[in-house]
Structure formats: structure tokens, C-alpha cells
Design a protein around this nucleic acid. Structure first.
Lengths: 148, 148
DNA sequence: ATATGTGCAAATGGTTTGCAGTGAG
DNA sequence: CTCACTGCAAACCATTTGCACATAT
């Protein structure tokens, strides 16, 4: 993973360059997603935010996440299970492995996805802008626990 | 794609074998998703259902789709855009190409995904049960229309 | 005959929006 | 100083649930 501090400054620069303000609330959110190894949900971000900003609202978090999506500095993961998760470390498409029981989300290195993406573009005439590849199953811990 | 008639009978058999009743409403829904080439949304299924069953409710459609998911006879696609889409032709994981402007959804043959899936399982210790691979971008038609 | 399925209406829950007040630049 | 941002509350909308009635088996 990239250096969290560098990543944070990178996001701030992008926001500033595009004319967006860096408020204390935004800075707090940026710190959370820039250093997050796990892919936090909105609710998890909200809980962490409340430590520093007890009056922070979910609306502000959603608005900031939407902004970050627009400038391409966060990746939104959404599965059938309610509630999106966000990745501020690697805002570009990449594979994930998700435990369907405990919800753990792992990152994995790309597996020649760029080539697959190009092949898709060639076969369909599409101009591919992004993709999402998710693997679902049981993590080793949940396998031990037996069928639920 | 498989023969729609065969596909329909296959789904019916699975439901019967698992002790579920084949009601007229279910049959109508099965016909819709068994022959659908495009990946219909709940709303689209609902509209088609109303032709034969004007009193059909969304609740029933959701319940039936949930049942079909449980028995593995339909694949649910859900992106960030509100509203899931369902594939009754190919209920197993496979790649899709989605136009982010007009919403068109294309199927594509699997690109060695089984191997990638195995590799993921090996690297993570996960027991992979399913996956989802989606490519997003602009379809040829929408590219012509220019940036919107 | 009877448990399962249907369909209405109400509830749920994640996300979005409107707007008055606040503060970053 | 000004316009973008915040945060509250209300709205939204896909999906789920409760329950009385209907019906496939």
C-alpha cells in the first residue's frame, strides 16, 4: 500500500486543484479513508468521525464521498448486501475477496485485468472506463466455524 | 444462449424438486426471465407481469426473485445505480459490459475466470462460492452522442 | 385439507435533498 | 466578504415484512 501520509496529501492536492475547500470535517474523513486498510462502510466512517466531530452528520459524509468519487480519489464497492464500502487507498479498479459470512474484504493484486478490459473493449466497441471484480466466499475463519 | 423453453423447464424442475409450488404468477415471471436476453430490472419484470396479472405486486416479484436466488436459478447484478438486474439465462458468474449512460448490459463469455477464481482461493485460503465481474463504460451508440 | 403463495399496506434502511446557518479562502 | 460546506430534518426509493385471503398440491 502507498504511504498513508503521501496518499492524504495527494487527495488534498486534487481537491484543492479542483477548487474544493478543505474543511476540518473533510480532512478528518480523508485521514480515515487514506489510512484505512479495510474498506470502511459509511457507518464505520461515521463512527470514527464522531470521535473528533460529535455533530457530524451522515449527509456530510455522503456528500464528501460523492465528491471524492467524482474526482476519482475513492473507489466505491457495492454488493447485494446493503451499504457501500469505500477504498481510498486504491481508487482504481481491482479485485476483492469478500467473506459472505463475516464481511471481511481483502484486496488482491490485479490479475492481468487491464488486458481483459482491453479485450472487452475490442469485442464490444465499448469505451471501458472502469470495472469491478469481486470474489465471494467464506474466509478461513468462517470455514472453521462450520455451516451457519 | 440456452433454448428458452428448455431453460424454463429446468427452472420449474428445480423449484418442484425443492418443494416449491408453481403458481401462475411464478410461471409468468419464469417465462420472462428465462427468455430475457437483456438483464431485466425488477421494474421491467413488473411491467411485463402486469400484462397478464394486473394485480401482481412488487412484493411477490421480490419474493420470487429471492427464492430463485436461493435455489441458484437466477443471477443478481447490482451496481451503484439504484435497482438490481436479474439474469435467468446464465445464473452463474460471468462478465458483463454496462453502458454508464444508456444502461445497456451485455453478456460476454468468461475469460479464464475459473482459473483466476482458483488462484484467488489459493492465495487467500477462501472458499470461493461466486464472483462478479463488471466492466463499465460507454457503448458505441453513446460514444457517438458525445459527452453528456 | 393445509401449508404455501399472493397482494395489499406499512415499515425499513441506505442514501439524497432542502435549507438556514457557518466558516474556508 | 462570499460562496461553498455543514448538519439537521424531511424526503426518497428500492426492498422487506406482516398479515388476511387465496390456491396449488
Amino acid at each position: 500500500m502507498a504511504d498513508p501520509q503521501y496518499r492524504l496529501e495527494q487527495i488534498i492536492k486534487v481537491l484543492r486543484d479542483k477548487g474544493h475547500r478543505i474543511t476540518p470535517q473533510r480532512l478528518a474523513l480523508l485521514k480515515i479513508i487514506a489510512k484505512s486498510e479495510g474498506h470502511p462502510s459509511v457507518e464505520q466512517i461515521y463512527e470514527q468521525m464522531k470521535a473528533d466531530f460529535p455533530t457530524t452528520s451522515l449527509a456530510t459524509i455522503y456528500k464528501t464521498l460523492t465528491l471524492l468519487k467524482e474526482v476519482g480519489e475513492v473507489l466505491e464497492l457495492n454488493f447485494a448486501t446493503a451499504g457501500s464500502h469505500y477504498d481510498g487507498n486504491k481508487p482504481y479498479p481491482h479485485p476483492h475477496v469478500i467473506c459472505t459470512r463475516c464481511g471481511q474484504i481483502l484486496d488482491r493484486k490485479s490479475v492481468a485485468l487491464a488486458e481483459i478490459s482491453q479485450e472487452m473493449a475490442r469485442l464490444t466497441g465499448y469505451e471501458i472506463t472502469h470495472h469491478q471484480l469481486n470474489f465471494f466466499g467464506l474466509c478461513p475463519e468462517c470455514q472453521k466455524a462450520g455451516p451457519g
